[in-house]
Amino acid sequence: MYRRKLKALGHHHPESFDVHNDQEFRNLVVWLEDQNIRLYKIEDRGEIRDVKSSEWLKTFRKYLDDLKCPVDLSQKVSVVDWLLAHAVRVEYAENAEKYNNVGQMDQSNQTEGLGESSLDDSLMNLTVDNPDLKAGVTSLSRLFSLPQHPDHFVLLQAVRSLIEGKLSSLASKTDKKSDKKADIIPLHKVDLGFDTGDSAVNEAAKIIRLLHVTELRELQTRINEAIVAVQAITANPKTDQSLGRVGV
């Protein structure tokens, strides 16, 4: 499941890496730290490099803390995924220009056949009840600290709206555009207008209403954009001062 990230980072056997093999796992951690992450100075990497040590797990736990990894070590699979993603981020941040150029060249040269070659079989043949998909959605939702839901489709939608709203490049762009920070109104200062008799339900109702208002606002903004586009064609406001006459 880490094949792409491992390959991207230049791992020597991305196809056969087995996260449940403890030795491979420990070696990978050391390799990532040495090659990409480089959180510690070389002379301070002694303990983490000592993969045979009985204290290694303790060292690793501290390492994750130092990295501010949000995933708990009990979820080893997710931790590895996070480490790999972090390494990719570091690698990209250091060589952004290089990779951006490659991306552009790729786009111009390889638009053909992209569909088949880059989407591997596992994605092409993905079905809704695929257990891998379920597991993936569940671990994603844990990463985002979303409450669990029995229907992984509902969870996936929640993950999607969270990413769209908070993490996508578009969202971060609009955040920057409105350069002043959004005003934060404490929930208890929001007026619900009615009382359900249950404070938790009241709060939920307030949240739903605020979300609803936000959605309406987005819709109205899109409508306004459409109106502005039409105005570019139809609008021709005129004034003629000679018509004006002041009354008595």
Partner: peptide, 16 residues
């Protein structure tokens, strides 16, 4: 403002 918005009884506007 007065030039743009005529006022009073019997006033006429500048928008054709």
């Amino acid at each position: 403002l007065f030039d743009h918005i005529p006022v009073g009884v019997g006033s006429k506007g500048v928008i054709p």
